[in-house]
Every structure is written in structure tokens, then in C-alpha cells.
């Protein structure tokens, strides 16, 4: 670079001066409140303690009949009892296993069918025009109402429970998948087209990865639905699962048992949900609000 560079003057402006002066009255700094400082675990335990205390009080003053609402320590004692039965491989473990099987098989079918239908709807004109309206129509129905049908068709064994569980969980997965396939933006599509990518390549290398956040939202809703479906079917159709244990305990007014069974059941739901979240974190590690490019709008 020649004369243009050399013709730049040494200094045109002035250095900006730094002083340590402030206007005292106008100092405004961040405030951290007491609540802000409490770690989450302490806050959660604290709230739980308050909840137990109120429960105990309600019980102590006999505001509600003890048959309807047992005391916390009764429930605690029963949790231990049920836990022992489960650990020792008693009849409750068998029931737990049956429900677990229903939930897992149901979720498997929901994922397989939901994903396939989602791709059909999101990727093909036929799916969008012809299949989607029916899916929407069925989705608006109360799906639990189909339970008697499944029982009539598939009997009182595990199959009818799997069917209802899968039926309920399929729809959010369809919706999540179809929405996910629309998630990739126009620039990404154009880039793939300009590279001469085939339909399959576009689907598997762009649309599905870009849609994973939506797909996982569907899976998480599905994971909750599959539990509800299995237990509802067990309530209505008997069998040997955990739902049946709850139903029997409730009919015998063993309320502490009902509570403790629900708590163990929720462990199953929790495990399923967090497995989905765990897989999501592995696969969708890139999804954050600050992602450059696609998938963030």
C-alpha cells in the first residue's frame, strides 16, 4: 500500500480519558435477593417440607377423614412395605413388570407408527392432503373412549393395554414429526437443492436433523401419554398390572397403599421421560437459542 497509507495523519482525534469519578446519588447496581441465593435443591426440599407439614396438620386436626387422607407417616410406612415387596421379587414386582412391558411395547409402537405417519404427512402431498385431515379428526376425539373397543378386540391380556397406550402416544409423535419436517428454513432447502441432493438425502441429512427438537417434544408428550394409556386400560380391563393393584387397593379403602403404589408408578413414568430427555440431549446437543443458521427460528 502506497501513498494512501502514508497520507494518513498520525492523529486526527483525541484519546478518551478515563477517570474514577462517579455521581454518588445515581449509582445503580444489580441486587441479588435472598430468594435468588437459595439453591434449587434446597428450595425444592423446603417446599416439600412445607407440604408435608400442612398434610400432617390436616391429619392431626382431623379436618378430613383418615380413610380419605392417611397421615404422611402411614404412607411412608407403606412405601417401605411396598418397596420390600418389590425388592424381594414379590407379586408386586410381577405387576410392576407387566405394566413396564405394556408401557415399553406401547411406546415402541407409538414411535414406529407415529414417526412413519409423521414423515408421510410432513413429506408427501398425499399425506398432507389425504391422511392429515383424518389424523386431526381422530386426535380431537377422547382417545380413552376407545378402550372398551380395544378390550373387545384384543381381550383382557397385555395386548389391549399396549394398544391403548400406543394409540394415545402416537398422535403427539405424528404432530411433532410432521412439524419438525417443516422446521428447516428456505435457505437450507435451497442449499440442498443447489447441491443436487436427492429426496432421501434432503430428508435424512437436513429435514429430520433440523426437526429433531420438534420430534423430541412429541416424544416427551408421548412418553407421558403412554403411561396414562396403559394405566387407564388396566383400570378398565383388569389384568395383572400395577393399575389393577391400585384399583383393588382403592376399592378396599387402603388409601396409604394407593398413595405408595402411585409413587412407585410415577418412578416408571419418570424413568421413561428422562430416558427420552437423555437421548435428546445426546442428539440435539446443538439446539440452543444462539445457534447460527437454521433450526433456531
Amino acid at each position: 500500500m502506497t501513498d494512501a497509507t502514508s497520507s494518513i495523519p498520525q492523529r486526527l482525534g483525541q484519546p478518551v480519558e478515563i477517570t474514577d469519578e462517579t455521581f454518588d446519588e445515581t449509582v445503580w447496581t444489580e441486587e441479588v435477593t435472598f430468594i435468588d441465593r437459595i439453591p434449587r435443591s434446597i428450595a425444592m426440599i423446603g417446599l416439600f417440607a412445607i407440604f408435608l407439614f400442612i398434610w400432617q396438620m390436616v391429619h392431626a386436626f382431623a379436618i378430613v377423614s383418615p380413610i380419605i387422607l392417611p397421615s404422611p407417616d402411614e404412607v411412608g410406612a407403606d412405601i417401605v412395605k411396598v418397596g420390600k415387596n418389590l425388592m424381594s421379587g414379590g407379586y408386586m414386582l410381577d405387576a410392576f413388570w407387566i405394566t413396564t412391558k405394556e408401557v415399553l411395547i406401547g411406546f415402541f409402537f407409538a414411535i414406529a407408527i407415529g414417526f412413519s405417519l409423521g414423515v408421510l404427512v410432513g413429506e408427501t402431498t398425499f399425506g398432507e392432503r389425504a391422511v392429515l385431515p383424518y389424523l386431526v379428526a381422530i386426535d380431537t376425539m377422547p382417545k380413552v373412549a376407545f378402550a372398551p373397543l380395544f378390550l373387545a378386540w384384543l381381550g383382557f391380556g397385555i395386548a389391549s393395554k399396549v394398544a391403548l397406550a400406543a394409540f394415545i402416544a402416537t398422535f403427539p409423535i405424528v404432530v411433532g414429526t410432521a412439524a419438525g419436517l417443516y422446521a428447516a428454513d428456505e435457505n437450507a432447502r435451497m442449499l440442498f437443492r443447489s447441491l443436487g441432493a436427492s429426496r432421501w438425502q434432503t430428508l435424512f441429512r437436513m429435514k429430520i436433523p433440523a426437526g429433531l427438537p420438534h420430534i423430541f417434544t412429541g416424544l416427551k408428550i408421548g412418553a407421558v401419554g403412554v403411561m396414562a394409556g396403559a394405566i387407564t386400560a388396566e383400570f378398565l380391563g383388569g389384568g395383572k398390572g400395577f393399575g389393577e393393584l391400585i384399583r383393588v387397593a382403592a376399592s378396599q379403602l387402603q388409601t396409604p397403599r394407593v398413595f405408595s403404589l402411585i409413587i412407585y408408578l410415577s418412578l416408571l413414568g419418570f424413568a421413561l421421560f428422562w430416558t427420552v430427555v437423555w437421548v435428546e440431549r445426546r442428539l440435539v446437543f446443538w439446539h440452543q437459542s444462539s445457534v447460527t443458521g437454521i433450526g433456531d427460528r
Binding site: L191, G293, G295, D296
Partner: peptide, 9 residues
Amino acid sequence: FQQATLFPW
């Protein structure tokens, strides 16, 4: 294109 359109994954 105007946007970089890098794929975040």
C-alpha cells in the same frame, strides 16, 4: 446465499 446456513449439528 445471504445467510451462511451452516448446519448446527
